[in-house]
Design a protein around this nucleic acid. Structure first.
Lengths: 233, 233
DNA sequence: ACAAAAGTGTTCAATTTACACCCATGG
DNA sequence: CCATGGGTGTAAATTGAACACTTTTGT
Protein backbone atom coordinates (compact mmCIF):
# COMPACT_ATOMS: atom_id res chain seq x y z
CA UNK A 1 0.00 0.00 0.00
CA UNK A 2 3.00 2.30 -0.39
CA UNK A 3 2.56 5.34 -2.59
CA UNK A 4 4.44 3.73 -5.44
CA UNK A 5 1.71 1.09 -5.74
CA UNK A 6 -0.76 3.69 -6.95
CA UNK A 7 -1.25 3.71 -10.67
CA UNK A 8 -1.68 7.09 -12.27
CA UNK A 9 -3.81 6.90 -15.36
CA UNK A 10 -6.09 8.81 -17.67
CA UNK A 11 -9.83 8.34 -17.73
CA UNK A 12 -11.62 8.06 -21.04
CA UNK A 13 -15.33 8.80 -21.27
CA UNK A 14 -16.83 6.91 -24.21
CA UNK A 15 -20.34 7.22 -25.57
CA UNK A 16 -22.74 4.76 -27.10
CA UNK A 17 -25.27 6.99 -28.84
CA UNK A 18 -28.30 5.15 -30.18
CA UNK A 19 -31.11 6.25 -32.43
CA UNK A 20 -33.78 4.67 -34.59
CA UNK A 21 -33.41 5.73 -38.21
CA UNK A 22 -34.66 4.18 -41.47
CA UNK A 23 -36.33 1.43 -39.46
CA UNK A 24 -33.06 0.32 -37.91
CA UNK A 25 -31.30 0.71 -34.59
CA UNK A 26 -28.22 2.79 -35.28
CA UNK A 27 -25.12 3.72 -33.39
CA UNK A 28 -22.88 6.75 -33.78
CA UNK A 29 -19.42 5.68 -34.87
CA UNK A 30 -16.41 7.76 -35.78
CA UNK A 31 -13.41 7.09 -37.92
CA UNK A 32 -10.37 7.73 -35.79
CA UNK A 33 -8.24 10.60 -37.02
CA UNK A 34 -5.22 9.81 -34.85
CA UNK A 35 -3.26 6.86 -33.59
CA UNK A 36 -3.85 4.41 -32.08
CA UNK A 37 -6.23 2.65 -34.45
CA UNK A 38 -6.02 5.53 -36.93
CA UNK A 39 -8.59 5.07 -39.68
CA UNK A 40 -10.55 2.43 -37.76
CA UNK A 41 -14.07 2.74 -36.43
CA UNK A 42 -14.60 3.53 -32.77
CA UNK A 43 -17.07 5.00 -30.32
CA UNK A 44 -16.93 8.75 -29.78
CA UNK A 45 -15.25 9.78 -26.57
CA UNK A 46 -12.36 11.59 -25.01
CA UNK A 47 -10.39 12.13 -21.86
CA UNK A 48 -11.66 13.52 -18.60
CA UNK A 49 -10.33 17.02 -17.89
CA UNK A 50 -9.43 18.67 -14.62
CA UNK A 51 -12.38 19.88 -12.59
CA UNK A 52 -14.91 17.91 -14.62
CA UNK A 53 -17.49 15.51 -13.29
CA UNK A 54 -17.91 12.31 -15.31
CA UNK A 55 -21.32 13.30 -16.61
CA UNK A 56 -20.03 16.74 -17.55
CA UNK A 57 -17.30 15.13 -19.60
CA UNK A 58 -19.85 12.89 -21.29
CA UNK A 59 -22.00 15.92 -22.14
CA UNK A 60 -18.99 17.82 -23.46
CA UNK A 61 -17.97 14.93 -25.71
CA UNK A 62 -21.54 14.57 -26.90
CA UNK A 63 -21.61 18.23 -27.86
CA UNK A 64 -18.21 18.13 -29.53
CA UNK A 65 -18.94 15.03 -31.59
CA UNK A 66 -22.58 15.53 -32.46
CA UNK A 67 -23.67 19.04 -31.55
CA UNK A 68 -26.28 17.58 -29.19
CA UNK A 69 -27.07 19.07 -25.81
CA UNK A 70 -26.85 16.35 -23.16
CA UNK A 71 -29.53 18.07 -21.07
CA UNK A 72 -32.08 17.44 -23.81
CA UNK A 73 -31.68 13.69 -24.14
CA UNK A 74 -31.20 10.60 -22.09
CA UNK A 75 -27.68 10.08 -20.79
CA UNK A 76 -26.90 7.36 -18.29
CA UNK A 77 -23.74 5.76 -17.04
CA UNK A 78 -23.22 2.21 -18.23
CA UNK A 79 -20.12 0.50 -16.93
CA UNK A 80 -16.40 1.02 -16.55
CA UNK A 81 -13.85 -1.00 -18.48
CA UNK A 82 -10.35 -1.34 -17.18
CA UNK A 83 -8.43 -4.23 -18.73
CA UNK A 84 -4.75 -3.28 -18.31
CA UNK A 85 -3.93 -3.59 -22.00
CA UNK A 86 -7.12 -2.12 -23.44
CA UNK A 87 -5.32 0.97 -24.75
CA UNK A 88 -1.84 0.74 -26.30
CA UNK A 89 -1.06 4.27 -25.13
CA UNK A 90 -0.86 3.05 -21.57
CA UNK A 91 -3.21 2.88 -18.62
CA UNK A 92 -6.58 4.24 -19.71
CA UNK A 93 -9.78 3.23 -17.96
CA UNK A 94 -13.00 3.94 -19.82
CA UNK A 95 -16.24 5.05 -18.20
CA UNK A 96 -19.02 4.52 -20.70
CA UNK A 97 -22.30 6.34 -21.11
CA UNK A 98 -25.42 5.41 -23.01
CA UNK A 99 -27.11 8.25 -24.88
CA UNK A 100 -30.46 7.98 -26.61
CA UNK A 101 -31.45 10.48 -29.27
CA UNK A 102 -34.37 10.98 -31.64
CA UNK A 103 -33.71 10.76 -35.37
CA UNK A 104 -31.20 13.55 -35.98
CA UNK A 105 -29.43 15.15 -38.90
CA UNK A 106 -26.14 13.42 -39.66
CA UNK A 107 -23.74 14.67 -37.04
CA UNK A 108 -20.70 16.79 -37.70
CA UNK A 109 -17.25 15.33 -37.29
CA UNK A 110 -15.35 16.45 -34.23
CA UNK A 111 -11.70 17.17 -33.74
CA UNK A 112 -10.68 13.64 -32.89
CA UNK A 113 -12.75 12.09 -35.66
CA UNK A 114 -12.20 12.44 -39.35
CA UNK A 115 -15.80 11.36 -39.95
CA UNK A 116 -18.83 10.52 -37.84
CA UNK A 117 -22.04 8.79 -38.93
CA UNK A 118 -24.89 6.51 -37.95
CA UNK A 119 -24.08 2.84 -38.50
CA UNK A 120 -26.64 0.05 -38.12
CA UNK A 121 -25.95 -1.84 -34.92
CA UNK A 122 -26.17 -5.14 -36.78
CA UNK A 123 -23.33 -4.13 -39.09
CA UNK A 124 -20.84 -3.00 -36.45
CA UNK A 125 -20.82 -6.07 -34.22
CA UNK A 126 -17.14 -6.49 -35.07
CA UNK A 127 -14.39 -4.14 -36.12
CA UNK A 128 -14.51 -1.35 -33.59
CA UNK A 129 -11.25 -0.21 -32.04
CA UNK A 130 -10.17 -0.92 -28.44
CA UNK A 131 -12.79 -2.96 -26.57
CA UNK A 132 -15.59 -0.94 -28.12
CA UNK A 133 -17.30 -4.01 -29.65
CA UNK A 134 -17.92 -5.31 -26.16
CA UNK A 135 -19.01 -1.91 -24.90
CA UNK A 136 -21.47 -1.51 -27.76
CA UNK A 137 -22.95 -4.96 -27.17
CA UNK A 138 -23.41 -4.25 -23.47
CA UNK A 139 -24.99 -0.89 -24.24
CA UNK A 140 -27.53 -2.32 -26.67
CA UNK A 141 -28.50 -4.98 -24.18
CA UNK A 142 -28.94 -2.29 -21.53
CA UNK A 143 -31.12 -0.23 -23.86
CA UNK A 144 -33.29 -3.28 -24.57
CA UNK A 145 -33.82 -3.88 -20.88
CA UNK A 146 -34.50 -0.18 -20.25
CA UNK A 147 -37.41 -0.29 -22.70
CA UNK A 148 -39.01 -2.98 -20.59
CA UNK A 149 -38.92 -1.11 -17.31
CA UNK A 150 -38.61 2.58 -18.09
CA UNK A 151 -40.12 5.20 -20.36
CA UNK A 152 -36.88 5.40 -22.33
CA UNK A 153 -38.56 4.60 -25.63
CA UNK A 154 -40.13 8.07 -25.71
CA UNK A 155 -36.64 9.57 -25.90
CA UNK A 156 -36.11 7.88 -29.27
CA UNK A 157 -39.11 9.83 -30.54
CA UNK A 158 -39.29 13.53 -31.19
CA UNK A 159 -41.22 15.99 -29.03
CA UNK A 160 -44.53 14.57 -30.23
CA UNK A 161 -45.25 11.10 -31.54
CA UNK A 162 -48.01 8.58 -32.10
CA UNK A 163 -48.44 5.27 -30.32
CA UNK A 164 -47.43 3.68 -33.61
CA UNK A 165 -44.14 5.59 -33.56
CA UNK A 166 -43.52 4.38 -30.04
CA UNK A 167 -44.32 0.80 -30.99
CA UNK A 168 -41.96 1.09 -33.92
CA UNK A 169 -39.16 1.99 -31.49
CA UNK A 170 -39.86 -1.10 -29.42
CA UNK A 171 -39.99 -3.31 -32.49
CA UNK A 172 -36.73 -2.02 -33.90
CA UNK A 173 -34.77 -2.05 -30.66
CA UNK A 174 -36.06 -5.47 -29.65
CA UNK A 175 -36.05 -6.84 -33.20
CA UNK A 176 -39.53 -8.24 -32.58
CA UNK A 177 -43.08 -7.61 -33.71
CA UNK A 178 -45.72 -6.48 -31.25
CA UNK A 179 -49.49 -6.57 -31.41
CA UNK A 180 -50.50 -2.97 -32.22
CA UNK A 181 -53.82 -3.28 -30.42
CA UNK A 182 -52.52 -4.60 -27.14
CA UNK A 183 -49.53 -2.26 -27.26
CA UNK A 184 -51.83 0.69 -27.65
CA UNK A 185 -53.68 -0.26 -24.51
CA UNK A 186 -50.57 -0.90 -22.47
CA UNK A 187 -49.26 2.55 -23.27
CA UNK A 188 -52.57 4.21 -22.49
CA UNK A 189 -53.03 2.30 -19.24
CA UNK A 190 -49.56 3.02 -17.88
CA UNK A 191 -49.86 6.25 -15.89
CA UNK A 192 -47.38 8.95 -16.83
CA UNK A 193 -46.02 7.19 -19.91
CA UNK A 194 -47.51 9.53 -22.51
CA UNK A 195 -49.74 12.63 -22.43
CA UNK A 196 -52.18 13.51 -25.20
CA UNK A 197 -51.44 16.77 -26.98
CA UNK A 198 -54.88 17.01 -28.55
CA UNK A 199 -53.33 17.15 -32.02
CA UNK A 200 -53.45 14.33 -34.56
CA UNK A 201 -51.22 13.21 -37.38
CA UNK A 202 -52.67 12.23 -40.75
CA UNK A 203 -50.67 9.39 -42.29
CA UNK A 204 -50.27 8.87 -46.07
CA UNK A 205 -52.96 6.26 -45.78
CA UNK A 206 -55.13 5.20 -42.86
CA UNK A 207 -56.90 6.71 -39.94
CA UNK A 208 -55.28 9.73 -38.22
CA UNK A 209 -53.42 8.93 -35.03
CA UNK A 210 -53.46 10.92 -31.81
CA UNK A 211 -50.22 12.72 -31.02
CA UNK A 212 -48.64 12.45 -27.59
CA UNK A 213 -45.72 13.92 -25.71
CA UNK A 214 -43.58 12.31 -23.04
CA UNK A 215 -45.23 11.85 -19.66
CA UNK A 216 -43.64 12.49 -16.30
CA UNK A 217 -43.08 8.86 -15.29
CA UNK A 218 -39.59 7.43 -15.50
CA UNK A 219 -40.45 3.82 -14.73
CA UNK A 220 -43.24 1.64 -16.13
CA UNK A 221 -45.77 0.02 -13.82
CA UNK A 222 -46.40 -2.56 -14.99
CA UNK A 223 -43.38 -3.17 -17.24
CA UNK A 224 -43.70 -3.95 -20.93
CA UNK A 225 -41.81 -7.21 -21.30
CA UNK A 226 -40.08 -8.54 -24.39
CA UNK A 227 -41.87 -11.47 -26.02
CA UNK A 228 -38.92 -13.81 -25.44
CA UNK A 229 -37.94 -12.50 -22.02
CA UNK A 230 -39.92 -14.72 -19.70
CA UNK A 231 -40.75 -17.92 -21.54
CA UNK A 232 -37.59 -19.96 -21.52
CA UNK A 233 -34.96 -19.84 -18.82
CA UNK B 1 -7.87 18.33 -27.07
CA UNK B 2 -4.16 19.08 -26.52
CA UNK B 3 -2.26 16.75 -24.26
CA UNK B 4 -2.33 19.24 -21.40
CA UNK B 5 -6.10 18.86 -21.23
CA UNK B 6 -5.80 15.26 -20.09
CA UNK B 7 -6.22 14.81 -16.40
CA UNK B 8 -4.00 12.24 -14.74
CA UNK B 9 -5.63 10.69 -11.73
CA UNK B 10 -5.74 7.69 -9.46
CA UNK B 11 -8.53 5.14 -9.53
CA UNK B 12 -10.01 3.91 -6.29
CA UNK B 13 -11.88 0.61 -6.16
CA UNK B 14 -14.36 0.66 -3.30
CA UNK B 15 -16.48 -2.22 -2.06
CA UNK B 16 -19.95 -2.46 -0.63
CA UNK B 17 -19.97 -5.86 1.03
CA UNK B 18 -23.38 -6.97 2.25
CA UNK B 19 -24.45 -9.84 4.40
CA UNK B 20 -27.46 -10.89 6.46
CA UNK B 21 -26.55 -11.37 10.11
CA UNK B 22 -28.61 -11.37 13.30
CA UNK B 23 -31.71 -10.79 11.22
CA UNK B 24 -30.37 -7.54 9.76
CA UNK B 25 -28.82 -6.40 6.51
CA UNK B 26 -25.26 -5.46 7.33
CA UNK B 27 -22.47 -3.69 5.56
CA UNK B 28 -18.74 -3.99 6.06
CA UNK B 29 -17.32 -0.68 7.25
CA UNK B 30 -13.81 0.23 8.28
CA UNK B 31 -12.42 2.90 10.52
CA UNK B 32 -9.91 4.82 8.48
CA UNK B 33 -6.36 4.55 9.82
CA UNK B 34 -4.92 7.38 7.74
CA UNK B 35 -5.84 10.81 6.50
CA UNK B 36 -8.03 11.99 4.95
CA UNK B 37 -11.00 11.29 7.23
CA UNK B 38 -8.76 9.51 9.75
CA UNK B 39 -10.87 7.82 12.40
CA UNK B 40 -14.08 8.10 10.38
CA UNK B 41 -16.09 5.26 8.95
CA UNK B 42 -15.73 4.40 5.28
CA UNK B 43 -16.15 1.62 2.78
CA UNK B 44 -13.21 -0.71 2.28
CA UNK B 45 -11.24 -0.06 -0.87
CA UNK B 46 -7.93 0.96 -2.31
CA UNK B 47 -6.14 2.19 -5.37
CA UNK B 48 -5.81 0.37 -8.65
CA UNK B 49 -2.28 -0.90 -9.26
CA UNK B 50 -0.32 -1.25 -12.47
CA UNK B 51 -1.27 -4.25 -14.58
CA UNK B 52 -4.49 -4.91 -12.68
CA UNK B 53 -7.94 -5.26 -14.12
CA UNK B 54 -10.71 -3.53 -12.16
CA UNK B 55 -12.21 -6.78 -10.95
CA UNK B 56 -8.79 -8.06 -9.94
CA UNK B 57 -8.31 -4.97 -7.81
CA UNK B 58 -11.72 -5.49 -6.24
CA UNK B 59 -10.86 -9.09 -5.42
CA UNK B 60 -7.51 -8.08 -3.97
CA UNK B 61 -9.09 -5.47 -1.72
CA UNK B 62 -11.74 -7.95 -0.68
CA UNK B 63 -9.04 -10.41 0.32
CA UNK B 64 -6.96 -7.79 2.11
CA UNK B 65 -9.84 -6.36 4.10
CA UNK B 66 -11.87 -9.47 4.85
CA UNK B 67 -9.89 -12.57 3.94
CA UNK B 68 -12.64 -13.54 1.49
CA UNK B 69 -11.91 -15.06 -1.90
CA UNK B 70 -13.73 -13.09 -4.59
CA UNK B 71 -14.15 -16.20 -6.71
CA UNK B 72 -16.38 -17.75 -4.08
CA UNK B 73 -18.96 -15.01 -3.81
CA UNK B 74 -20.92 -12.57 -5.86
CA UNK B 75 -18.95 -9.55 -7.05
CA UNK B 76 -20.42 -7.15 -9.55
CA UNK B 77 -19.52 -3.69 -10.70
CA UNK B 78 -21.92 -1.01 -9.56
CA UNK B 79 -21.16 2.49 -10.78
CA UNK B 80 -18.32 4.96 -11.02
CA UNK B 81 -18.23 8.18 -9.05
CA UNK B 82 -16.17 11.09 -10.27
CA UNK B 83 -17.16 14.40 -8.69
CA UNK B 84 -14.03 16.56 -8.98
CA UNK B 85 -13.84 17.32 -5.26
CA UNK B 86 -14.85 13.95 -3.91
CA UNK B 87 -11.39 13.26 -2.49
CA UNK B 88 -9.34 16.03 -0.82
CA UNK B 89 -6.09 14.34 -1.92
CA UNK B 90 -6.79 15.34 -5.49
CA UNK B 91 -8.38 13.71 -8.51
CA UNK B 92 -9.56 10.26 -7.52
CA UNK B 93 -12.36 8.51 -9.38
CA UNK B 94 -13.98 5.58 -7.61
CA UNK B 95 -15.20 2.42 -9.33
CA UNK B 96 -17.50 0.63 -6.91
CA UNK B 97 -18.27 -3.06 -6.59
CA UNK B 98 -21.08 -4.83 -4.80
CA UNK B 99 -20.10 -8.00 -2.96
CA UNK B 100 -22.56 -10.40 -1.36
CA UNK B 101 -21.41 -12.83 1.27
CA UNK B 102 -23.04 -15.41 3.54
CA UNK B 103 -22.86 -14.85 7.28
CA UNK B 104 -19.13 -14.78 8.00
CA UNK B 105 -16.85 -14.58 11.00
CA UNK B 106 -16.03 -10.97 11.88
CA UNK B 107 -13.44 -9.89 9.35
CA UNK B 108 -9.87 -8.98 10.16
CA UNK B 109 -8.72 -5.40 9.83
CA UNK B 110 -6.53 -4.62 6.85
CA UNK B 111 -3.58 -2.33 6.52
CA UNK B 112 -5.56 0.78 5.67
CA UNK B 113 -8.17 0.16 8.34
CA UNK B 114 -7.65 0.29 12.06
CA UNK B 115 -10.84 -1.75 12.53
CA UNK B 116 -13.37 -3.46 10.29
CA UNK B 117 -16.80 -4.78 11.27
CA UNK B 118 -20.34 -5.43 10.16
CA UNK B 119 -22.61 -2.44 10.69
CA UNK B 120 -26.38 -2.53 10.21
CA UNK B 121 -27.27 -0.70 7.01
CA UNK B 122 -29.96 1.26 8.84
CA UNK B 123 -27.41 2.70 11.24
CA UNK B 124 -24.84 3.90 8.71
CA UNK B 125 -27.07 5.94 6.45
CA UNK B 126 -25.02 8.99 7.41
CA UNK B 127 -21.50 9.53 8.54
CA UNK B 128 -19.37 7.65 6.05
CA UNK B 129 -16.34 9.40 4.62
CA UNK B 130 -16.06 10.75 1.05
CA UNK B 131 -19.26 10.14 -0.93
CA UNK B 132 -19.61 6.68 0.57
CA UNK B 133 -23.07 7.36 2.02
CA UNK B 134 -24.38 7.81 -1.50
CA UNK B 135 -22.48 4.79 -2.77
CA UNK B 136 -23.86 2.61 0.01
CA UNK B 137 -27.42 3.77 -0.67
CA UNK B 138 -27.07 3.02 -4.37
CA UNK B 139 -25.59 -0.38 -3.61
CA UNK B 140 -28.39 -1.41 -1.28
CA UNK B 141 -30.97 -0.34 -3.82
CA UNK B 142 -29.15 -2.38 -6.46
CA UNK B 143 -29.11 -5.43 -4.21
CA UNK B 144 -32.84 -5.06 -3.60
CA UNK B 145 -33.53 -4.99 -7.32
CA UNK B 146 -31.16 -7.91 -7.94
CA UNK B 147 -33.23 -10.07 -5.58
CA UNK B 148 -36.26 -9.45 -7.77
CA UNK B 149 -34.70 -10.55 -11.03
CA UNK B 150 -31.74 -12.78 -10.23
CA UNK B 151 -30.85 -15.69 -7.99
CA UNK B 152 -28.60 -13.43 -5.91
CA UNK B 153 -30.41 -14.24 -2.67
CA UNK B 154 -28.84 -17.70 -2.63
CA UNK B 155 -25.42 -16.07 -2.29
CA UNK B 156 -26.44 -14.63 1.08
CA UNK B 157 -26.98 -18.21 2.25
CA UNK B 158 -24.35 -20.79 2.91
CA UNK B 159 -23.72 -23.85 0.69
CA UNK B 160 -27.02 -25.41 1.77
CA UNK B 161 -30.13 -23.69 3.02
CA UNK B 162 -33.85 -24.11 3.48
CA UNK B 163 -36.59 -22.21 1.69
CA UNK B 164 -37.20 -20.48 4.99
CA UNK B 165 -33.60 -19.26 5.06
CA UNK B 166 -34.00 -17.91 1.57
CA UNK B 167 -37.23 -16.18 2.46
CA UNK B 168 -35.54 -14.67 5.47
CA UNK B 169 -32.94 -13.10 3.16
CA UNK B 170 -35.67 -11.54 1.04
CA UNK B 171 -37.50 -10.25 4.09
CA UNK B 172 -34.41 -8.68 5.63
CA UNK B 173 -33.06 -7.12 2.45
CA UNK B 174 -36.45 -5.81 1.38
CA UNK B 175 -37.58 -4.97 4.92
CA UNK B 176 -40.90 -6.65 4.16
CA UNK B 177 -42.78 -9.74 5.18
CA UNK B 178 -43.60 -12.41 2.63
CA UNK B 179 -46.17 -15.17 2.66
CA UNK B 180 -44.17 -18.32 3.44
CA UNK B 181 -46.56 -20.54 1.50
CA UNK B 182 -46.58 -18.59 -1.72
CA UNK B 183 -42.85 -17.95 -1.47
CA UNK B 184 -42.20 -21.65 -1.15
CA UNK B 185 -44.06 -22.33 -4.38
CA UNK B 186 -42.40 -19.52 -6.29
CA UNK B 187 -38.97 -20.84 -5.42
CA UNK B 188 -39.87 -24.41 -6.30
CA UNK B 189 -41.51 -23.41 -9.59
CA UNK B 190 -38.62 -21.28 -10.81
CA UNK B 191 -36.37 -23.61 -12.79
CA UNK B 192 -32.72 -23.55 -11.75
CA UNK B 193 -33.22 -21.42 -8.64
CA UNK B 194 -32.52 -24.15 -6.08
CA UNK B 195 -31.67 -27.85 -6.22
CA UNK B 196 -32.72 -30.33 -3.53
CA UNK B 197 -29.83 -31.97 -1.70
CA UNK B 198 -31.97 -34.73 -0.25
CA UNK B 199 -30.96 -33.75 3.27
CA UNK B 200 -33.23 -32.05 5.77
CA UNK B 201 -32.68 -29.71 8.69
CA UNK B 202 -34.47 -30.21 12.00
CA UNK B 203 -35.34 -26.90 13.61
CA UNK B 204 -35.62 -26.37 17.40
CA UNK B 205 -39.32 -26.70 16.97
CA UNK B 206 -41.41 -27.49 13.96
CA UNK B 207 -41.41 -29.72 10.96
CA UNK B 208 -38.02 -30.43 9.33
CA UNK B 209 -37.28 -28.45 6.20
CA UNK B 210 -35.69 -29.74 3.01
CA UNK B 211 -32.18 -28.47 2.35
CA UNK B 212 -31.24 -27.04 -1.03
CA UNK B 213 -28.16 -25.79 -2.77
CA UNK B 214 -27.88 -23.05 -5.39
CA UNK B 215 -29.21 -23.92 -8.82
CA UNK B 216 -27.57 -23.07 -12.13
CA UNK B 217 -29.89 -20.23 -13.14
CA UNK B 218 -28.68 -16.66 -12.81
CA UNK B 219 -31.94 -14.91 -13.64
CA UNK B 220 -35.43 -15.60 -12.36
CA UNK B 221 -38.26 -16.36 -14.77
CA UNK B 222 -40.65 -15.15 -13.61
CA UNK B 223 -39.18 -12.53 -11.28
CA UNK B 224 -40.09 -12.34 -7.59
CA UNK B 225 -41.31 -8.78 -7.20
CA UNK B 226 -41.26 -6.66 -4.08
CA UNK B 227 -44.68 -6.12 -2.49
CA UNK B 228 -44.48 -2.33 -2.99
CA UNK B 229 -42.80 -2.39 -6.40
CA UNK B 230 -45.72 -2.38 -8.77
CA UNK B 231 -48.69 -0.82 -7.01
CA UNK B 232 -48.12 2.90 -7.06
CA UNK B 233 -46.23 4.87 -9.69
C1' DA C 1 -51.88 -32.72 23.33
C1' DC C 2 -49.75 -28.55 21.95
C1' DA C 3 -46.72 -25.18 19.69
C1' DA C 4 -44.17 -24.15 15.81
C1' DA C 5 -42.47 -24.20 11.27
C1' DA C 6 -43.03 -26.64 6.51
C1' DG C 7 -45.61 -27.36 2.87
C1' DT C 8 -50.25 -28.31 -0.20
C1' DG C 9 -54.89 -27.13 -2.13
C1' DT C 10 -58.22 -23.99 -3.43
C1' DT C 11 -60.41 -19.83 -4.57
C1' DC C 12 -60.87 -15.28 -6.44
C1' DA C 13 -58.98 -11.34 -8.72
C1' DA C 14 -55.79 -9.24 -11.84
C1' DT C 15 -53.23 -9.49 -15.80
C1' DT C 16 -51.92 -11.09 -20.44
C1' DT C 17 -52.93 -12.77 -24.97
C1' DA C 18 -55.29 -13.55 -29.09
C1' DC C 19 -58.23 -11.95 -32.23
C1' DA C 20 -63.02 -10.22 -33.95
C1' DC C 21 -64.52 -6.03 -35.04
C1' DC C 22 -65.23 -0.97 -35.87
C1' DC C 23 -63.13 3.88 -37.17
C1' DA C 24 -61.26 7.40 -40.22
C1' DT C 25 -58.79 8.80 -43.93
C1' DG C 26 -56.71 9.00 -49.07
C1' DG C 27 -56.94 7.27 -53.51
C1' DC D 1 -65.45 1.09 -52.19
C1' DC D 2 -61.07 -0.48 -51.02
C1' DA D 3 -56.56 -0.41 -48.75
C1' DT D 4 -54.29 1.00 -44.70
C1' DG D 5 -53.16 2.01 -40.23
C1' DG D 6 -55.65 3.45 -35.57
C1' DG D 7 -58.20 1.93 -31.99
C1' DT D 8 -62.09 -0.80 -28.85
C1' DG D 9 -64.41 -5.12 -27.08
C1' DT D 10 -64.19 -9.46 -25.36
C1' DA D 11 -63.33 -14.22 -24.08
C1' DA D 12 -59.80 -17.67 -22.82
C1' DA D 13 -55.53 -18.56 -20.56
C1' DT D 14 -52.21 -17.45 -17.34
C1' DT D 15 -50.55 -15.57 -13.25
C1' DG D 16 -50.73 -13.74 -8.45
C1' DA D 17 -52.54 -13.04 -3.64
C1' DA D 18 -55.01 -14.67 0.22
C1' DC D 19 -55.80 -18.11 3.27
C1' DA D 20 -57.85 -22.76 5.04
C1' DC D 21 -55.76 -26.82 5.99
C1' DT D 22 -52.50 -30.80 6.48
C1' DT D 23 -47.68 -32.51 7.77
C1' DT D 24 -43.87 -33.35 10.92
C1' DT D 25 -41.19 -32.58 14.44
C1' DG D 26 -39.83 -31.35 19.88
C1' DT D 27 -41.57 -30.76 24.44
Amino acid sequence: MADRDHLWLRLAVDLVILTVRDGQLKLLVIERANDPYQGQLALPGGFLRAGEDLREAAERELLEETGLDGRDLHLEQLATYGAPDRDPRGPVVSVTYLAIAPDLPIPTAGSDASRAWWAPVKEVRHGLAFDHDQIARDAVERARTRLEFTTLATVFCGPTFTVGDLRHVYEVVWDATLDPRNFSRKVAQTPGFVEPTGARRIPPTGRPAALYRRGTAETLHPPILRPSSGTDG
